[in-house]
Design a protein around this nucleic acid. Structure first.
Lengths: 171, 171
DNA sequence: CGTGACGATTTCCGATTCGGCAACTTCCAG
DNA sequence: CTGGAAGTTGCCGAATCGGAAATCGTCACG
């Protein structure tokens, strides 16, 4: 026996297949999935799903479409920070509720973020006021998200292709 | 009168509240949500959820943890597409399991995407082979995600330590 | 080779949840 | 005041879900 630090859940092919189905539609019933796969009982599917959720391998949630919702403005930010201050800026930036995503990246920009605001006025204010007062921020490039096609591996917009499920891709 | 094509769904406060609950847990039952809100019947909650899904206002899906699935390398892509082909490219890109996030944006690049692959070799292959054969793709800028600070509106453990599995995607 | 242990799968079952239908309320135009 | 459209609610059978126990498969060990 050893120290139980992170009891990794071993994801096998069945899990992957289940995840693939659930990615397309998180409301699919276990019976439905079992029927499509064909070789396992419906109860096993439910066991697996419970296990995956328990191990935090997946999270099932509702993904709102900002375009459809109309009001919410989503913006992608690329932020250049002075050398040595990237971590500080990141920590400060992470405090904002408006920031839904934040990562350090390679390339020209040091930080990449997603910003959610009510309207364009709020966007301007955030970039001008909030970002402006963060020490070390050199440049900010913003791109308004016009349409969401896929989020968290889940297609969000009605895309013409009636593909039931994409071909099998190696995980 | 005009021929109404956009039968836009009017999102009210009740809808927003439902969305908020479902965002946290897409498997919440209508009865549970009704109980928490307290002023509406369980049946109405189900009507609303069905309506929101029908109108594509939300999508309920499983959000997988890339790291858990073996995709340890996360890359942000900015893709420039020839005019008129953006939608086509987006549809094709959305098919890939490796693409976890895809959106049309304003600015220089037309498409913004997040790519999850197993290693750098897979990254190179995807950009060179897969992206290269998509018609209309003019330029691709890639940035490797070095550190995740915030995902899903919640700070990642990466801010304190770099241990836990924290890979997810934009929100 | 037998045996016990452990995990995964499966079966069984009651409780919960879901979708369809019809009645009812609300709201507004005429 | 009246008719109609839209939203809400209760009702119901069918489907789904979670818990408990039985079954199966694998594996280490005597």
């Amino acid at each position: 026996m050893e120290t139980v630090m992170t009891q990794r859940y071993l994801v096998d092919d069945l899990d992957r297949e289940i995840i693939r189905y659930l990615s397309e539609d998180g409301r699919l019933s276990a019976a439905e999935i079992a029927g499509r796969i064909g070789s396992v009982s419906e109860r096993t599917i439910r066991n697996r799903i419970a296990g995956l959720l328990q191990a935090k391998m997946i999270v099932i949630g509702a993904i709102p479409d900002p375009v459809a919702l109309g009001r919410d403005v989503q913006v992608e930010l690329l932020i250049e920070v002075e050398p040595g201050k990237q971590e500080d800026v990141a920590i400060l930036l992470a405090e904002y509720d408006e920031i839904g995503y934040l990562a350090a990246t390679s390339g020209t920009a040091n930080l990449s973020a997603s910003l959610f605001v009510a309207d364009h006025a709020a966007l301007l204010e955030f970039i001008d006021q909030e970002l402006g007062k963060l020490p070390g921020v050199k440049r900010v490039t913003s791109s308004v998200v016009l349409r969401l096609y896929k989020v968290f591996g889940t297609r969000t917009t009605a895309i013409s292709r009636g593909t039931d499920l994409g071909g099998k891709k190696k995980g």
